[in-house]
């Protein structure tokens, strides 16, 4: 059918054919849609209902729920002294971390994609943060006396290595800031970001394993012949990065930004996530659901704003 429409080029027929083919899209996404209806929709509706209710778990099993309107939300946003502050902190951390994590992981992925001795070993080492991302080793290490003893070596665990330790006689982070102000005339915001990044290097390294792997796979998909022809035309490495690699990897930059935003919002070191899971464990489903809804709405708003903004710069080979 497709062949015929292509051969005759009749506008009306080809329209119905593509439309038919588009309907087949539902077949491809059907597992997810089915799963959503089967599993997720109920959870969604329940948690939405609970956020307007006072839920009490009964000792003989089951629960009782009473409709109390917006009381849960009022309690969290107006009465609770910490929630707004923690929410603001979560957003601030996210906005601060994302550019650093994405730039760092693209840089490392490009490095790990170059031909060099020991590349396989380095790639395997940079895969370790991915394995540790589920946090199982961290959990097993809670109260681990030996790891605690070893991590008392100053700065190694937190990554605030030489920058703040003036023991080496180099710089303290304050001095570093002052030098940057005086010598290079950097703007204060830029100075804070760079020094902050240096202090958080361990966090950045341990949170970018997934992104590095995604970029690395994306770099494989760029055909080497493009680089070859660019080389013949006299393109330098720097130019071919910005003119070839960057646009072709940009769809995955969007993925990594979205993932980093979500990771920063839902990561285990996030105070609000801790509160939500803690409230869940205590059986305060009403409060927990209301908190979760506020939090995820804020996260979703940021996700949409950032996603729409970035996707304007994303280059796809097929324009629709």
């Amino acid at each position: 059918m497709i062949k015929r429409s292509a051969a005759f080029g009749k506008k009306r027929i080809s329209f119905t054919v593509t439309q038919k083919r588009d309907l087949m899209g539902w077949v491809f996404v059907s597992p997810f849609v089915l799963g959503f209806l089967l599993l997720f929709l109920g959870i969604f509706i329940d948690s939405f209902r609970f956020s307007f209710m006072e839920v009490n778990v009964l000792s003989q099993g089951g629960y009782s729920a009473k409709f109390i309107g917006f009381d849960n939300f009022h309690q969290i946003l107006r009465v609770d002294p910490n929630f707004n502050r923690q929410l603001y902190g979560a957003v601030q951390n996210m906005l601060f971390d994302i550019p650093i994590i994405v730039m760092y992981s693209l840089f490392i992925a490009v490095l790990l994609n170059q031909k060099m001795k020991g590349r396989a070993i380095f790639r395997a080492i940079f895969f370790v943060p991915v394995i540790l991302a589920t946090g199982i080793v961290d959990k097993a290490d809670l109260g681990n006396s030996i790891m605690n003893a070893y991590q008392s070596i100053p700065g190694l665990d937190t990554g605030i290595a030489e920058v703040t330790e003036s023991a080496g006689g180099m710089f303290s982070s304050l001095q570093l800031k002052r030098y940057m102000f005086q010598m290079f005339d950097f703007s204060p915001a830029l100075v804070n970001i760079t020094v902050g990044a240096a202090e958080n290097i361990y966090d950045v390294v341990s949170h970018s394993g997934v992104q590095i792997l995604i970029f690395l796979a994306g770099l494989q998909a760029i055909s080497t012949s493009i680089y070859e022809s660019a080389k013949i035309e006299g393109c330098s490495g720097w130019e071919s990065f910005w003119k070839i690699t960057f646009p072709l990897i940009s769809p995955l930059i969007l993925v990594n930004i979205i993932y980093s935003v979500i990771d920063s919002f839902t990561g285990s070191n996030n105070q609000i996530m801790d509160r939500i899971t803690a409230a869940m464990k205590l059986g305060q489903y009403g409060t927990a659901s209301a908190m979760a809804w506020i939090y995820f709405l804020v996260a979703a708003v940021f996700l949409i704003v950032i996603g729409l903004f970035v996707s304007r710069f994303v280059f796809y080979q097929n324009r629709e």
Binding site: F40, I43, D46, Y259, F265, M273, A300
Partner: peptide, 15 residues
């Protein structure tokens, strides 16, 4: 995208 945003810990009991 929403399903990545919502961690499974929050709907553990339903699951």
């Amino acid at each position: 995208v929403l399903t990545i945003l919502i961690p499974p810990q929050t709907y553990m009991i339903s699951l």
